[in-house]
Write a protein that binds this DNA or RNA. Structure first.
Lengths: 341, 341
DNA sequence: CTGAAAGCGCTAACAC
DNA sequence: GTGTTAGCGCTTTCAG
């Protein structure tokens, strides 16, 4: 244990070269795994690297290559399950591709903050940006500021001009509805997420379309804010009415659990008297009683796809197609056939 | 609107200098806000910057300064509420200080992976590392690899040799226990988190100590894995016994909600027949019925403190003291005096 | 197979 | 006030 110096300045390529008695160039070649180096020299160089604890300085590499080998991740809400998962998948995919992930927090997705975030990202060192939206982009103006930096948006308006990756919300919502329909439910309600969320809107639209296609009368859609508390409130209002539904399709699991809690409170037995389907397949949903039937989103695939597309854009490679990731339905204990009336 | 070139190579300081008819140095001075530039020149330079969309190249700056202005964040479990919050706070604090946050995902906290993560971090450009532990560091050996890079560990063994920031687990657990005790509860059970979590251990130890100090007989401690499902399982076993407790202190909110669900299932009324206190003060806990009394952790403060300490270490400044962040108790509807027997 | 030279974009140090 | 020079650590190019 030697006393650590104040700033143990890292060994440079020159130091290694000097110690090994070779040129800096040869060290560089060894560091980058080029073949045209004699075994004897390679050994000497590697030994010297080891001894000095040499690490290539990425700032210098970046300067030379004009690339930063880093992608910027802008997100407004790290608390949302989907964003976490996507974020994790992006970070892993980026790491595998030799890129780091730079996190840019934005507390409030207004134009100003977004602009600030992008400005910072560009002053910082990123080759591309992934935007994890939980709310809408106000206007193209907001993004004009990316200004040449490749950009992929996750969870946004599919009609937007930006490259987009997302869960296939429509397909997922249909999965949930078809399940309830097949069980025999006809009075099916929907608790939607906030209006400024594209995924919430897509799910709500798919619900309405399904009801229309099957000539079912759709009760008014209730809106929550993704939280358990709002789901519970929706449940209170939904189950307190005259003609309560026999089934509810809830736009995410947290609200579904809140609704379940409202049902328990009213002494309603789930699934005997009420069927509930959530969206997300969150671990919490599986752990409650009754365990929640839910639409599983493949966030890992979303993150991977977004990363793959971004890296392709950065490299000028052809862009992978099909940015909509399908869902699957996980049937558990919160759904059953409606009670005979 | 001109057609964007394939790679719109960013304007360099030279380009700006040429356009403005000044030296690169002058551009640099303007960019860095130095005063000793005539207003006329400053105007010209700023105009040229604007026209070319100039952004300083951080790679070059980093190379020159020997700093990366970036902190690395290593985390194993981005899904845990506490880690998310801390992560967000770190990112914000870092941003405010002019640093970016580089995310390094580690799927599995074994020595090998940790070493890999640190290796990557050092090849990458970070001036310091924050380690968000959800599980224990196996041995000092794991961290030997940071090798001169300043390191702050969040949520770990307080006896460790590394700089540490954490919630004051002991104080938080006592808050919960004192609340139940003051309500009149004497048969108080504890559902702990996994054994490899330091916070879980601290809370469990504080529980045991409290019971001992008050001459109360402590039922055997049940262990969960932080999940709602494990809390529900603990609840089933706890409430099915001969002498069920009148109150339970649960090591996190998710497990507490699982336990609540088990209580509902058995037809036990909360808080009339059973009081429950959680830990974390998660939004979900507030949204359920009954809403959960819980120990509030100030994750934002933890993240800020960790960042402040790390930046001080990087700058060689004196290290802020008092790395233990106090908690507060949020009393809601899941606790009440025990039923008279 | 190996080395020497040049330069990536920026700024500290030194002229003028 | 402003310009010139040099060099951060690395890799591409060109000589040997």
């Amino acid at each position: 244990m030697t006393a650590a110096p104040e700033h143990p300045s890292r060994a440079s390529i020159k130091d290694v070269a000097r110690l090994a008695g070779v040129s800096a160039q040869t060290v560089s070649r060894v560091a980058n795994g080029y073949v045209h180096v004699s075994d004897a020299l390679r050994e000497r160089v590697l030994a010297s690297m080891q001894e000095l604890g040499y690490r290539p300085n990425s700032a210098a590499r970046n300067l030379k290559s004009g690339r930063f080998h880093s992608i910027g991740l802008v997100t407004f809400n790290i608390t949302a399950l989907g964003n976490q998962r996507t974020l994790g998948a992006v970070a892993e995919a980026a790491t595998r591709a030799g890129y780091t992930t730079t996190l840019i927090p934005v507390s409030d997705p207004t134009g100003g903050n977004l602009a600030g975030a992008f400005g910072r990202l560009q002053e910082q060192a990123v080759d591309g940006i992934i935007l994890l939206m939980s709310a809408k982009i106000n206007s193209p103006h907001d993004l004009a500021l990316t200004d040449g930096v490749p950009l992929v948006v996750v969870d946004s308006d599919p009609t937007s001009q930006y490259t987009l990756v997302d869960t296939d919300q429509e397909q997922g919502a249909r999965l949930a509805m078809q399940h309830l329909f097949d069980l025999g439910h006809r009075r099916i309600a929907h608790v939607a997420g906030p209006d400024d969320s594209f995924s919430a809107r897509h799910r709500a639209e798919a619900y309405s379309r399904f009801m229309r296609e099957h000539d079912l009368e759709a009760p008014e859609i209730l809106r929550g804010d993704w939280s358990a508390a709002s789901g519970r409130a929706a449940g209170e209002s939904l189950l307190g009415g005259d003609h309560p539904p026999t089934a509810v399709f809830v736009a995410n699991d947290e609200m579904a659990l809140g609704l379940l809690s409202a049902a328990h409170r009213r002494g309603l037995s789930v699934p005997a008297q009420l069927s509930v389907v959530g969206f997300d397949d969150s671990p919490d949903g599986a752990g409650f009683w009754p365990s929640l039937t839910s639409v599983h989103q493949n966030f890992a695939a979303v993150g991977q796809r977004a990363t793959a597309i971004l890296l392709a854009m950065i490299d000028g490679d052809p862009i992978p197609e099909n940015p909509l990731i399908p869902t699957s339905l996980v049937v558990r204990d919160s759904t059953a056939a409606p009670a005979a009336r």
